[in-house]
Design a protein around this nucleic acid. Structure first.
Lengths: 191, 191
DNA sequence: TTCTTTATAGAACAAGTATTCTTAGAAGGT
DNA sequence: ACCTTCTAAGAATACTTGTTCTATAAAGAA
């Protein structure tokens, strides 16, 4: 039997996330991908077929490793606390880098139906997760009873995307943490 | 004296906005830029020097023609009404396309200091404009007196960036208009 | 009209980049 | 120890794309 591969697909995908975050899809060149992931060209094309197919794999990996993990905060449906911890973790995740999925949407969304589909699905999931948390929060009496839950959830979803953009520019994230408080504060019932 | 140019720099810059919006910076190739703007290669390089320099010009043009125009709504400082009309116009501006500046930030922000600078300046202006409006609104008794103006302004600024991303995906923008109402509603004093 | 100047169109060039191919060598089976 | 099989490294290829160059023609001045 032949030698075994030295690379680890999971690690390659993880390392590639940063490369695409830094340079975008078209700006990330194969030489850097090969070099920084420690992969080799032949193996790369045997494994993934093309740069584009590779991006899709990286995006999928990014979602399951990070985005879905972050959303678990919301799925525990503990009301406002869940929303709070989601934002705290999200801000620290995107700090100084932004979000790979958001970057792909803005760079490729117009031309790439696959990316658009993934993006829509992500935003939908996020909104649904927020709705679940808000309903719970309402039941717990944590938020004003009169708010429109769907609109508020959409609103929170927009915030998340806004943070992803801001994070690329913001040196420190104290600002963003402050914004989170300002954002969630008005929802809560004043004690 | 020689013949006069048939192209119109202003028009070229305006047409280029859509091209960069559709394909991003690296995805927009010179052939399409030349073709769709009706420019010619030689003239292009005499006038702008390079694709990168051209992007900066297009970005500047985009800001003065659209972003600053939209912000005038806020500068009139008529309180909540100004904020409302800003959002209405903004949503209709980014509908189906997104915002060129935001797209450039997410695609190039990490590598391009110029773009980062322009982006920061834009977000700052926007936040300051919101602050002006909120102060006015507070003086007019249109909003709750206890809200933290700076935080609320930052919150609104994040929201704007979220819309820019959502708009790339959203077929219709009714959703976004609804979210805006949900957002601004709680600020206002109930009548 | 004729001459000068410069825009136009697109061919040519050169740099960059995704993909394929070649060679050498490592890991295990017999 | 030897052979097979597949990986590793990177050279080579083919294509894309930003930039420059050339030839043509149009617009005005004298």
């Amino acid at each position: 039997m032949p030698r075994k591969p030295q690379y680890n697909i999971d690690l390659v995908l993880t390392l590639a996330i940063d490369i695409f975050l830094e340079h975008g899809y078209h700006g990330a060149i194969m030489d850097e991908i090969i070099f920084r992931t420690g992969f080799n060209r032949r193996g790369f094309y045997l494994e993934f077929g093309s740069k584009q197919a590779f991006l899709y794999k990286v995006l999928g990996h990014y979602q399951s490793k990070y985005l879905q993990e972050l959303m678990k905060n919301l799925e525990s449906k503990q009301g406002l606390d869940s929303i709070n911890s989601f934002f705290t973790e999200y801000v620290s995740h995107v700090k100084g880098k932004g979000c790979l999925l958001i970057n792909c949407i803005t760079e490729l969304g117009f031309d790439d139906e696959t990316v658009r589909g993934v993006g829509r699905h992500y935003l939908d999931s996020l909104q649904i997760a927020f709705i679940g948390c808000l309903e719970k929060a309402q039941n717990l009496g944590q938020v004003q009873p009169h708010i429109n839950i769907e609109s508020t959830a959409l609103q929170l979803t927009s915030y998340v995307q806004g943070f992803a953009v801001n994070a690329v520019l913001a040196g420190d994230t104290d600002e963003l943490q402050l914004a989170t408080q300002a954002l969630l504060g008005p929802l809560a019932i004043k004690q």
